[in-house]
Amino acid sequence: MTAQRYRTPAMRAFHEAPQAASRLVCFPHAGGFASYFFPLSRALAPAVEVLGVQYPGRLDRSEEPAVEDIGVLAEEAAALIADDPHPPPTLFGHSMGALVAFETAKRLTRDHGITPAGLIVSGMRAPSRPRRRPRDWDREEELLDEMRLLSGTDPALMEDEELRELFLPVLRSDFRAVNAYPGDDTVLSCPVTAFAGDEDPVTPDGVHHWATHTSAEFTTRSFPGDHFYLKGFPPSVTAAVREALSRS
């Protein structure tokens, strides 16, 4: 398996891993890019091939309209994985990406006959748990308030009007996709691991409910930090990903 085999803008590989025995497909948060997972790929290569999903509407897919439907994002990812299903991947999603990863796992099994090796979810309530109250994402201040709550963006960027014009439209579409997600109680047959920051305002009571979404092993892990506790993938998080992969 090599980084050269993925030339589609929708799926990015970062490091050569020709002898990798396992594969990790990563789904970024709202407003995020595939490259968020570059540090994780660097830490795991060459033992693990790490791939990052690039959603429409950003960077090399900036000419495509952003998608405001979690299911549509998952269908695209599942089709890409099904084109090259070996070895069956573990799926890893953070925040919005956790929902996209879950829906991708569901579609791989249902539509393509592929059982993922595992699912790692981070910073998101279980699909069967109620979402937070809808927000008016047409209002710029609502978007900025949410970004401040999650602590994932440099405050200086939010004060720059030109930069806001670049990143807020994609973020708005991603937040709409999360708000529109209807919920789901599907039970997967692969192991599920749930991560969360111990100061994350999004997941104070919803992480453990991921246990209801697997008939296999369930594991949960808490880390010091807020919603973006995994930024840069510190050693403790990378080690936990390795451990989750070993159970797959």
Rank of each mutant, 00 (worst) to 15 (best):
G52D: 01
H29C: 07
A79N: 06
L40F: 08
L44T: 09
P201N: 06
F233R: 09
F228K: 09
T220I: 02
R12Q: 11
E49H: 12
A3I: 13
G113K: 12
R131P: 05
T104Q: 03
H86P: 01
M1K: 03
S95Q: 03
P234D: 08
T104L: 11
N179Q: 15
A34E: 05
T2I: 11
A194R: 13
R131L: 14
D84L: 14
V67E: 04
V202F: 00
E146A: 09
P204I: 12
N179P: 00
F33T: 13
S122Q: 10
D83V: 05
T203L: 02
E141F: 01
S128A: 08
A156C: 03
P134S: 11
G225A: 09
E63A: 15
V170A: 12
L73F: 07
G93Y: 07
T203P: 07
C190Y: 02
S35R: 13
D138K: 13
S62P: 00
S122R: 14
V25I: 15
A82R: 11
V121N: 00
E63C: 12
T193H: 02
T2S: 10
F14P: 09
S95D: 07
L163M: 15
T115E: 13
E199I: 03
T115L: 14
P235W: 09
P130K: 07
R23E: 03
A177H: 03
E141A: 14
A10R: 15
V100Y: 03
V50C: 02
I114F: 01
G232M: 10
A194H: 05
A180D: 10
P88Q: 12
